[in-house]
Amino acid sequence: MTKATLVVCAQGVETHAGRAALASVVQGVRRETREFDVVDAFVGTQHPDVAEVVAQLPGRRVVVPLTLWHDDEVEARLRHLASALPGVTVAAPIGPDWLLAELGVRRLIEAGARPGDSIVLAAGPAGSVRARHDIAKAARLLSAVWGGRVHVAGDMSGPELAEAIDIARAYQRRVVVSIYALTMSQATSRIGRLGADVVTAPLLSAGAGEPGVISLVLARATARGSSLAMGR
Rank of each mutant, 00 (worst) to 15 (best):
L142M: 09
G158E: 13
L57K: 06
Q172S: 07
R60I: 10
R106G: 03
E110C: 09
G212H: 13
E75Y: 07
V129C: 07
A91I: 07
S226R: 14
A181I: 03
G44Q: 08
L141V: 02
G195E: 03
P86G: 13
I135A: 00
K3P: 04
A51I: 09
L81P: 04
A113L: 04
G28F: 01
R34A: 11
D117T: 02
H133W: 12
A126S: 14
L203D: 01
G18R: 06
A20P: 00
A138E: 00
G212N: 13
A82M: 06
E160Y: 11
A51S: 14
V120W: 03
V175K: 06
V13M: 07
S83E: 15
L121P: 00
P211A: 14
E52I: 15
A201D: 10
M156I: 11
L6K: 01
E163F: 11
V62W: 00
Q172C: 04
G192K: 05
V176P: 00
E163M: 13
P48S: 14
S157C: 09
M230I: 13
A41H: 10
L22G: 00
A122S: 11
V25P: 03
I191K: 00
R193T: 10
L228G: 04
L6C: 04
V43K: 05
V13T: 13
R106N: 07
P211L: 12
T183G: 09
V50H: 04
A131P: 02
R232W: 14
V177T: 05
D97S: 14
W98N: 08
P96L: 03
A4W: 02
I191E: 02
V53I: 13
R224H: 10
I135N: 00
G209P: 07
R140V: 00
P115T: 11
L68S: 01
L108H: 06
E163I: 12
A221C: 08
L142P: 01
C9Q: 04
L204K: 06
V177R: 00
R149P: 05
R34Q: 13
G148N: 05
G195S: 05
A208H: 12
E14Y: 13
M184Y: 09
A221E: 02
